[in-house]
Each structure stands twice: as C-alpha cells, then as structure tokens.
Computed example of a mutant assay.
Amino acid sequence: MSRQLTRDEAWEILTKYNKEAFHLQHSETVESVMRYFAKELGYGEEEEFWGNVGLLHDLDFEMYPQEHCLKCQELMRELDLEERLIHAVASHGYGICCDVEPTHEMEKVLFAVDELTGLIGAAALMRPSKSVQDMELKSVKKKFKDKAFAAGCNRDVIKRGAEQLGWELDILLSRTLDAMKADPKN
C-alpha cells in the first residue's frame, strides 16, 4: 500500500542519494517554486505534495545520471511511494531521458521550471547581490537569449514547458522569477 510522504521523509530520501550542495540547493529551489505554483494555481491543499515532487525531482541524477528519471522510479517503488508521486517526478524527463508524459498541470509546471530555475539561479549569481530579489524580468530575458550563458540550461525544454502549460514564454519567465523571489533564500 503506497502512502503519502512528509517533507522530512522526502528530504531524508533525497539526501540518501544526493550529497553535493549544488544538487541539494537546486532541489530546494524547485521545491519552493513548486509550492508557490501550487498556491498560485489553486492547488493549495496539494502544496506539500507539489513541494515533495519538486524536492525529489532529481533524486537519481547525482548517483545515476545515465539513468535519470528511470532509476528514480525503481528507487521510489522500493520505498512503496505513491504512483502519482513517481509519475510526477519522472515526467520532468519526458522526451529527454524517459517517456513518462506530464499530464497533470503540476507535472507540466515541473517540466517547465526545472531548467528555468537553474538559468535564473545562475543569473542571480552574476549580480552583486547574488540574489533574485532585485532581479527584473528583462535581465532574465537577456540571459535566456544569450545561448553562451548557462549553456547547460536547455532553452528548448523551457520553451516546450511553456507550450505545455499554454503560457507565453514571458509569462513563464515572469511567474518563475516571482516564485523564486517568494523564497528569501534565493
């Protein structure tokens, strides 16, 4: 019988497979963005679930990069976690490293914001404040257009994510920046 996960349990699972500070910080950033969108999009009662999906989305990436979004399914099933959690986590790799399609709005948000939070986070590190708190949309758009900046952040995935959500790219950029600003740690 699968069960729901608490945030503390999700963190314990994440840190069993991830040790690098960069990966842990990225997971927490995506968690906070997912929690923000849960509330913004009318899924407030699901905030914990959305947050845990964000926290665990790269569960297998550090130890099993060649099996990303595949190995996590196996690991989570061994822990008897909910199938909807497993599907949601794996779906952010759709068309990239797995064939689990994002169907729920939450899964589409995760797909769209994963790469984008990395790009915005990298842009923040270039600022004197090292923070998104004083960043404007025009700065994000400029960095997005500069293919040499944060070259590892796949702009096509971000664009596909916006399309899946039915949002203009600028709306996705703006809302994700707002979501990151809502967490004072960013």
Rank of each mutant, 00 (worst) to 15 (best):
M1G: 07
S2L: 06
T6Y: 08
T6V: 08
R7W: 03
R7K: 11
A10M: 10
A10C: 10
W11D: 14
L14A: 04
T15K: 04
Y17L: 12
Y17M: 05
N18C: 11
F22L: 14
L24K: 01
Q25V: 10
S27P: 03
S27C: 13
S27E: 08
E28M: 13
V30A: 02
S32V: 04
Y36T: 02
E40N: 14
L41S: 06
L41T: 07
L41G: 03
G42K: 10
G44I: 09
G44A: 12
F49K: 09
L55T: 09
H57V: 11
M63S: 13
Q66R: 14
Q66H: 12
E67R: 12
L70D: 13
L70N: 12
C72T: 12
Q73P: 11
M76H: 11
R77P: 04
R77A: 13
L79A: 13
E83N: 11
R84E: 15
R84P: 05
H87E: 15
H92G: 06
G95C: 11
C97R: 03
C98A: 14
C98D: 10
C98V: 10
D99T: 10
P102F: 00
H104D: 14
E105G: 04
M106K: 07
K108I: 01
A112Q: 09
D114I: 03
T117C: 11
I120Y: 00
M126N: 12
R127V: 05
P128Y: 00
P128C: 02
S129M: 10
K130C: 08
V132Q: 04
Q133F: 03
D134G: 09
K145L: 06
K145S: 05
K147N: 04
A148T: 15
A148M: 13
A148W: 04
F149S: 01
A150Q: 02
A151M: 12
G152F: 11
N154P: 07
N154Q: 10
N154F: 06
R155T: 00
V157E: 06
K159I: 01
E163F: 05
L165A: 03
L165E: 05
G166L: 07
L169F: 00
D170K: 03
L172W: 00
T176G: 06
T176K: 00
D183Q: 09
